[in-house]
Design a protein around this nucleic acid. Sequence first.
DNA 1: TTTGGCACTCCCGGTCCGGGAGTGCCAGTC
DNA 2: GACTGGCACTCCCGGACCGGGAGTGCCAAA
Lengths: 338, 338
Amino acid sequence: MDDRKLEVLRAIVEDYVATQEPVGSKAVAQRHALGVSAATVRNDMAYLEEAGYIQQPHTSAGRIPTAKGYRLFVDRLGKIKPLSSAERRAVHRFLSEAIDLDDVVTRTVRLLAQLTHQVAVVQYPSLNRSSVRHLEIVAVTPTRLMIVMITDTGRVEQRYVEVPAELSEENVLELRRLANEQLQGRALADAPRIIANLASLARPELRDSAEALARVLRETVVARTEERLAVAGAANLTRAGNFFAGSMRPILEALEEEVVLMQLLGRADSNALLTVRIGDENEIDDFRETTVVAAGYGPGSVVGHMGVLGPTRMDYPGTIAAVRAVARYVSEILEQNR
Amino acid sequence: MDDRKLEVLRAIVEDYVATQEPVGSKAVAQRHALGVSAATVRNDMAYLEEAGYIQQPHTSAGRIPTAKGYRLFVDRLGKIKPLSSAERRAVHRFLSEAIDLDDVVTRTVRLLAQLTHQVAVVQYPSLNRSSVRHLEIVAVTPTRLMIVMITDTGRVEQRYVEVPAELSEENVLELRRLANEQLQGRALADAPRIIANLASLARPELRDSAEALARVLRETVVARTEERLAVAGAANLTRAGNFFAGSMRPILEALEEEVVLMQLLGRADSNALLTVRIGDENEIDDFRETTVVAAGYGPGSVVGHMGVLGPTRMDYPGTIAAVRAVARYVSEILEQNR
DNA sequence: TTTGGCACTCCCGGTCCGGGAGTGCCAGTC
DNA sequence: GACTGGCACTCCCGGACCGGGAGTGCCAAA
């Protein structure tokens, strides 16, 4: 594969993304000073089509990139264009004004949508990748406790527990001490087995209450494997040429389905800093025309993912730069708050 | 205005909603046993058009209802058709499985979207219509407190406070006692002035801490006038004939704008149990083709609103019944949890 | 007041057609 | 051997045209 052929591919991708229209040999030859004539470009295009990087919507039309073409573009041709320093500053300022984790997530997702002009999705720090910073237990009524768990990522979960017998103030403190002693600083992934023998460590008269407490903790920590997600920028789906009405529906539906979104953002095991999944590389049928750019974030290790979702014909260099930059800033912020 | 003319209007509304197509005199005469001929119906239609209840998309087409026509239909013609008992049971079961307020709201909004096939919006119980059930203050570090406020509607808000000096455990308890003494059971709407002289009631050495506490409470309670909202069913916007791609964009945008949604759900002062705002009755330009059916909910008094949002050509009797029923069930649930 | 009849209007879908953009191929040139 | 200009060909696209159909408004008669 010739250098010039790559240049032709780049020209096609860039022009097509910019204009949303099939691009012909003449346009390529003229606008991208390749120093060759349209006829030569035509030969290269025939080659690229043969190799599966571009295709013709119909005979005697220009060419548009295939998923394979975009893939090559992303891997070898797209030089990521960093955010302007004005953008950087704006991102930084906007995110650093956040007052708590909810606020960080909300701001992040809006920011991503605005920067990329696509639909943005941000996963809250996953519980099973966080550890316990603090566990608070307070009696709301004598037989009803409220448990508040704060994780090292700033996420706060609260639940109620009904305990079988009235608890004195001292006993509540005792339970709290016990639970914190066992759980503080521990990864939530390890929590289940710690919780399992929590009750056995309690004084006999507190056994039943500790048992109830352990049950609720287990529910909160283990059974609650669902992830929380924030979405913004759905209106960007209607941008000119992004999607036609028919193909929008499954995407709008997916945006309300936690399971699908998590699958798109990236399976837990992926360790790559940033992944781009183009068209059918997302193994979901309705997303054959959709690209997902996703990144992990977190203080040190990855605790969650964020990303944007748009038509395969998107501005890859810009989108990738934006997602990467935002993920970094958010990680920094979480780091500071730790 | 003749009885039969009203029947003709009803027929037009019902047929148009069902078929999404302008309805002609012949169809009305045939399908709705009015006992008169098409020519007679034509005369009535001419009258209804003159009076502004229906209109012709173009000469020699059938008629479609105007906003004014829908209004008359809703006010005088639409007999609300109650949910089937199967639906009632399903609603009841689904909602009663909710484990906390978040869950109630999430389930409610999904349920509404599914029952009505429209976009559903549910406002979390408004803070300034709730009262304080309990206020918890715990020291996370010696100079950092976490405040957890639980309202009578089950909503939980938490915030951190940095206090100027280290606080002993007793002092924390003292602050907590003081805050609860003053605020418990009080309406949050009254809270600002109570908070204002909270510090003056504290013992001298706690003044500064109480001051900081008061400041955060004020922020949480007063400045945080934003409302939380949940949205579901955006994909319903793409239903055949609901909206064309062009008119969808402003609606999708509005769904992410708290201010606009609140305006649509109904201003705080409206005391009506259920309101239907048709087309330009919503005073927002982008919603001239949109109807909002909204209801207040709450244990006893209204603490929040919920509603659905769809094209003016919607199934009014069904939608109204669904919104009303769901609002009632949710109110019941909040009542039970109080 | 209602009805049947009738002329009229206008949309809709189909067909036809010419212009334009783009291609593939070929023969010629450097 | 690679590149280029020329040329015939293909196919989309938008506009014009047209006939059928649905619906209307009006009128005269019951």
